[in-house]
Design a protein around this nucleic acid. Structure first.
Lengths: 222, 222
DNA sequence: GTTGCAACCAATTTCGAATTGGTTTCGGTA
DNA sequence: TACCGAAACCAATTCGAAATTGGTTGCAAC
């Protein structure tokens, strides 16, 4: 009989390799996955509870289980909007929202969340290539929105995230930061992570604004 | 034969009296309204174009024609969210969003929009009772979001608006401002309107933050 | 008591039909 | 020719029913 931890590490490896994931980072439904692993659904759910607690997966009733932050509910509704939106407009909204989210996260994150967030921040620093950085950056910003502990705010950040994914221009961007910009972004992530983990709300707000201004300027030049 | 302006003023009066409106401030569909007024749909649409341009009505394909700002698309989806949200959380989001919207509106509003906005602001000052103030205040804040000229931002403000309407607590709030608070809100509206119309972005941002803090404090005491 | 299983619950998605504002076409009339 | 009205068509949304999916409970077996 395999222990929970045996199954968990097996799942962690398969998720990391992208084995079980579809194009949107979604795992198979629990009923199907349990059959495939030849364990009961109750057993699988115990394991998934582990992975969800440690932040490896995201689960949402009616949508599924994801290895990345879940899509906004009814993401399809945002498609027509995504077509009318420019990158500059999205950055404008992010600059309006995310500094506030960072301040709230610094004030409200639980001890466990701060631990998880430290690991996520480290992952953005360790990213080997652009694709790895993009994924880690996505999780980094999502986690901040989550730590703000305001469901309405989170749903808005998810809307931004969905619009960015739906929009055409995300697929055609060159998406290659210069080394100088890249190290600047990495340094900003570090400052941001430190202020949030320490609970410095004003510092986090300023650091997020600083970070997003850099991103916006880089996009504007491209 | 009635002129466009004859029909228009008749419609303006009926809308003001709430004659044609259902509970959500919605007018009958164009096909039905045209029959009832015994004019052609093309004629009616010319008149509605007038009213829409002057800001009396809001039209949205697939939803209808409204005498108040239209509901968010797929507003039903926000119902489960509205149940989990507290007034304090909504005010938190408004404080995060609306000062930025006010700044953008001050920078980007067209001359025509500033004229309309001046009238809307005057309506909030002239409100005779609480119900009239609530309606005028609703239009006031919506117009600011509209003048920011960012579709993603506007959709987020509409989400806030829908959540407030769906939430249970909006129906049970006492909803009676004291005279002192009321005159303070009126003065803040005036400052806000002046800064936006003059194009003073920083002033508008500060004035909106000031205004929303007052509203939040008033709600917190209740 | 724990485990496995099934049924049920709650939120979402999906799909198709109906609704509604927006646009075009076409015939008639002045 | 120019305008008007009617109808058809287009585009976005809403609505409802069925299916999907994570979350929860009850039950029987060991």
């Amino acid at each position: 009989m395999l222990s929970d931890e045996d199954i968990a590490s097996r799942l962690r490896r398969q998720i990391a390799e992208g084995d079980l994931l579809d194009a949107d980072g979604r795992l198979p439904p629990e009923r199907e996955l349990a059959q495939r692993l030849e364990i009961s659904r109750a057993h699988l759910r115990r394991v998934l509870d582990l992975l969800a607690t440690e932040g490896t997966i995201f689960r949402r009733r009616g949508q599924g289980t994801f290895a990345l932050p879940p899509p906004a509910t009814d993401a399809a509704r945002l498609k027509p909007l995504a077509r009318r939106i420019t990158p500059a407009e999205v950055m404008e909204v992010r600059l309006g929202l995310e500094p506030t989210l960072a301040a709230l996260a610094a004030r409200r994150a639980t001890a466990q969340e701060r631990d998880q967030f430290a690991q996520i921040a480290a992952a953005t620093q360790a990213a080997a290539d652009q694709a790895a950085y993009d994924t880690a950056d996505d999780v980094f910003h999502y986690k901040i929105a989550e730590m703000a502990h305001n469901a309405l705010f989170l749903s808005m950040y998810e809307a931004i995230r969905s619009v960015r994914r739906e929009a055409i221009w995300t697929r055609q961007r060159a998406e290659t930061y210069s080394d100088a910009v890249f190290s600047q972004l990495a340094h900003q992530h570090q400052t941001l992570a430190e202020t949030i983990i320490k609970g410095n709300a004003e510092g986090a707000e300023a650091a997020m604004a600083d970070h997003l201004r850099t991103v916006a300027q880089t996009l504007a030049k491209a």
